[in-house]
Amino acid sequence: MTEARSGDAPDPLVSVVVVTYNSASTVGETLSSLAEQTYPDDRYEVLVVDGGSSDDTERVVAGYDASFHVVDGGTIGACRNRGIDTADGRYVAFTDSDCAVPATWLRSLVDRIVGADDHIAGIGGPNRPFPDDPAFAKLVGSLQGTVFGSGGSPQSHAIDRVREVRSVACCNVIYDAALLEEYRFDGDINVGEDAELHFRLSEAGYRFLFDPVIAVSHHLSADFAAFTKKARSYGYSMARIQRRHGKLIRWYSPIPSAALGGGTVAALADLRSRRARYVPVLALAYLLVSGYATAQVYRDRRSPLALLTPVLLAAQYVCYGVGFLEGLTAVDPVPQDLP
């Protein structure tokens, strides 16, 4: 898929695609970080693809060396495809408009992908909260760095070595442009479009290289309402995607819904028998799980806010589980974000 360049060959051209929607408050931060890359200025282009913003996103983008493209009402998948269609680069990198990348980001990604084995579809790394983000967002980042907070998903910075994985987060990834001519994002998908594409790639035998050093800063949920809404949205979308393929894309995706159903059955059984037999056992199991996650979060954050981990974990499971059930029973054939 890729070839190592000789010492005298120029760096390959890279197209960086930034998908955005109503992100006037953050997209400038993203584009500023892309303007400060150590990669040669004439060897990369920045393409901003907008889903039809109603705020000042276009005005902010106009202040930077980036081309602006609109897919009015487009999903994230459709916007990513427009970026691919517009790209001139040998490689196509993606980050999001609520992220900031380090100055060495492109250099690191390109050095990894040039000469990579043919079965490597791309290179990615973790996304972490901004240093000046609210304490709640940092707590969410630490929670998602635990096996119970993310199912061991590789965007977690808890993975501390370079390894092959089946999927990476699309806010921090580079692909070979030739591969994207054959494999495209599903234009109907607005959440989880990267997971769906990467599932198809993994089914075809491709893998990604995850490098924990190549990290980007990402504005995570700043409050409880945003956190629960996102969890429900992810559950909904994952169910719709898995219905579409008829396969389990994420091994852990049905677990929250199954836990909700099991807990309800256990509570009803205890009520019927008027004996507390099942619920205490389930409660003890959850205390063990959440206690382990709390210890991990505290080691990472060193803050008493880690004591909120059991509450956040329960809220995430419940909202994801509800969203997953909604996605399984939804009539519409298209996975969409929730209002």
Rank of each mutant, 00 (worst) to 15 (best):
L13N: 06
E45C: 04
P154N: 09
G125M: 01
G83C: 06
V114H: 14
A225P: 00
Y91M: 11
D85A: 12
P126C: 02
R240Y: 02
R250Y: 15
V216R: 00
A93T: 10
R302Y: 08
L31M: 00
P12M: 09
T146L: 05
Y317C: 14
A239M: 04
L307H: 07
H69E: 09
E164A: 13
P102Y: 13
R112D: 07
V334A: 04
D176N: 15
S167D: 12
N172Y: 04
G261Q: 12
I159A: 14
E196Y: 00
S150T: 07
C79A: 10
A225F: 08
V61G: 02
R107M: 02
G83R: 08
F208A: 06
S108V: 01
D337C: 06
P131D: 15
R128H: 15
E3I: 08
V318F: 13
S217T: 05
G77N: 01
V147Q: 03
Y236R: 04
Q296F: 08
R240L: 01
Q296L: 13
I174V: 10
L31C: 09
D270K: 06
S221M: 09
E29M: 14
A283R: 10
F224Y: 12
S217R: 08
V281L: 14
I255Q: 11
P131A: 10
G124R: 03
R112C: 05
Y21I: 03
P212S: 04
G63N: 13
L308T: 00
E164G: 13
V279C: 12
V92K: 11
S303C: 07
A87C: 14
N172H: 05
I120Y: 03
R184V: 05
G73S: 03
L47I: 14
T228I: 07
G51N: 05
G149I: 02
I255Y: 12
G73I: 04
Y39H: 01
G262F: 07
C171F: 13
D270C: 08
G152R: 01
